[in-house]
Design a protein around this nucleic acid. Structure first.
Length: 255
DNA sequence: ATGTCGAGGCCACCTCGA
């Protein structure tokens, strides 16, 4: 079984690439972030024609998430229960016995800003909900665009980025708290090439210079960890002539 | 090199967010 995450930065623009990618990578489940589509504009028919069931939760211009799966989805949840939020950032469902939670974590803009405070409140709410989800669903994966680079080795220039958004102590503490709930970073279960990133700024020729951050993550529960056999970042879509700024991340589970 | 994209307003350029 394979489960993947991809911030597509506008599904309207990236739909052809998504369909191409699914043909080459027929994963069992995929969560998308930054679809930037209201639900009435979501390309449900095209995705179903590609052999996937899909749940989605979107809004105009910003954010928006979706969950695609080959098999049926049970107990679909949109956004964090009990956390009033106008921003569409979370979608979850149980797929083939695995609780799949996809998230588009707030960017946070800059430490000290209102958006940073919102990011912290959102992370608090996620953490509280996740405790319950883990108790109810031991086989769980939390994946998406975390907008957090957990360690200095996840940053192309850790000195320049020290204390900057994605790299603050507060964000990294939140990431470690998630691990403390009984989750593990699937990517770090394996030896990986140094300078592995999942996002490169569109500016500054960042991709050509491989100046990026690893901010898209797949965290798996302790009960799921023994099944994890691989976790990779697929840089290929970032080489498209009209790419998203993020690359997909894929985890492989043994049956 | 702050050297890019994408959405949306009410455009044929600007602002915002990332």
């Amino acid at each position: 079984m394979q489960i993947a995450t991809w911030n597509v930065n506008s599904l309207a623009v990236r739909l052809p690439q998504l369909l191409d990618w699914l043909q080459a990578n027929p994963v069992d489940a995929l969560v998308l972030q930054e679809t930037k589509l209201t639900d009435d504009k979501f390309p449900q028919a095209e995705i179903e024609a590609a052999g996937y069931q899909v749940s989605f939760h979107g809004q105009k211009t910003y954010n928006g998430v979706a969950l695609l799966s080959r098999g049926p989805q049970e107990a679909v949840v949109k956004n964090i229960p009990g956390f009033a939020d106008e921003q569409a950032r979370v979608i979850a469902a149980t797929v083939a016995g695995v609780r799949v939670i996809g998230g588009y974590f707030p960017n946070g803009q800059a430490p000290g800003s209102e958006k940073f405070a919102y990011k912290m409140a959102w992370l608090d709410a996620l953490q509280a909900w996740l405790r319950q989800e883990l108790a109810a669903h031991p086989q769980l994966v939390l994946l998406g665009d975390y907008n957090i680079a957990p360690e200095d080795r996840d940053v192309y220039d850790p000195v320049a980025w020290a204390g900057q958004i994605h790299c603050t102590d507060e964000e990294r503490t939140h990431f470690r708290t998630l691990l403390g709930l009984g989750l593990v970073d699937a990517f770090r279960l394996f030896e990986q090439p140094p300078k592995s990133w999942s996002w490169w700024d569109y500016r500054n020729l960042a991709f050509r210079k491989n100046q990026g951050l690893r901010i898209d993550h797949i965290l798996v529960s302790a009960a799921l960890q023994p099944r994890v056999s691989a976790c990779v970042i697929d840089k290929l879509p970032r080489k498209n002539e009209r790419p998203s700024d993020h690359a997909p991340v894929v985890v492989t589970l043994k049956d």
